[in-house]
Design a protein around this nucleic acid. Sequence first.
DNA 1: ACCTGAACACCGTTCAAGT
DNA 2: ACCTGAACACCGTTCAAGT
Lengths: 227, 227
Amino acid sequence: MVNGKEAKSRRERPAKAPLSREAIVDQALEILTRYGLAGLSLRKIAAALDTGAASLYVYVANLEELKSLILDRAIGDVKIPPKIKGRWRVRLKAVAWSYMKVLIARPGLGQLAIQSIPVGPNTLRLMEAIAEMLLEGNLDQLAAAWALDAILVHASAIAAEQDARRGQSRPLEWMKPALEDLNPKEHPNIAQLGDALLAGDGEARAQWGLEFMINGILSTPIEATKL
Amino acid sequence: MVNGKEAKSRRERPAKAPLSREAIVDQALEILTRYGLAGLSLRKIAAALDTGAASLYVYVANLEELKSLILDRAIGDVKIPPKIKGRWRVRLKAVAWSYMKVLIARPGLGQLAIQSIPVGPNTLRLMEAIAEMLLEGNLDQLAAAWALDAILVHASAIAAEQDARRGQSRPLEWMKPALEDLNPKEHPNIAQLGDALLAGDGEARAQWGLEFMINGILSTPIEATKL
DNA sequence: ACCTGAACACCGTTCAAGT
DNA sequence: ACCTGAACACCGTTCAAGT
């Protein structure tokens, strides 16, 4: 039985790739990209892999676990800026920005990020990088821990929000009808904000969001918070 | 046909309440409370109202619209602090806090808040109140508009995060296994954060979150943000 | 106008049976 | 050990038919 592994001639079909965790997550990510979160299903993934849904359960505990895996895989695309002494603040903003962009790049990922708890090598790598920057910024243990969570949740939330509004033609279009019906007598302050509610592309808003998050975190010691 | 409306004796059954948008949203909120977002379905709502799912479509366009209605109804519980000149900052924190608590009070609401765009009288009332406070704080139009959105998204995100972790016994329990497996050589900075990642009840974190949000927003002019 | 049952096109998950 | 088909218990939505 020498070399039993390499059976070179498998005629039938273009060599249906063997099932594996990786292949499943790959296919899942592709289906997510094409059909969105609502269109993601084990049955569709299985079909794309030329098998039945039941077969996936050998590699994945359930749909929820698969979602965590998808998320961690996507997070693999986040660009982590190289360590440069003294530049932790710009680097922090850069990772957060990259994370947000990765989540926004594919439909459904934003929602996924806020729904499921990603655990995997890429998520750890991302958290490790952010922790390093915050600690270099001289935040103490507790502040760094809370800040880490806050930054990830914030970026996820912005991505999820964009997700929810996707499908609408222009970003904030959904608000227009509501604003036009608005009775300025009843809601004078919203009326005063007027077009500003619709203004600004997502990028500028998101940048400002990261900026004020970091400013706020750095200027708000935890002890100062009273219950 | 005088008084044809009041047919007083309807024997059979305890007078099955007539279907209505209100009754449907009521029932939906109850089912959401009991079964969570995953357990919410038109069929279950219909069954609870002693009818078939198809009947609901007279009052509601589809499940998505119903979700928006549920959300707006829930937002009706948010406590809006009375206007007191010069106290806009504490009032702002108080509404945001109330909004967050309302979303956290029922399972699924946090997820709902970040998934669907609520439009309704209660949502408008909430936005109007926050806009008023921000304008009293001398934010200009654009800053106030963006800040309004940022605060609502933040509160929703915290609620959604809590939602995602619900089911676990203690709030941050899910992290423990991941942290124990952690190789401190590979992830020294996460290791250094250690227990801090698990520390602090949700309330303290959430309070700190609102605090730094407001601090950050107030100290970060939009023009300062560079792309 | 409102309500209904049945049907359609889907789901995730389990399980006995095959290899 | 891995894969499969069939079954179970669900979904949202549509539609013809009833009142």
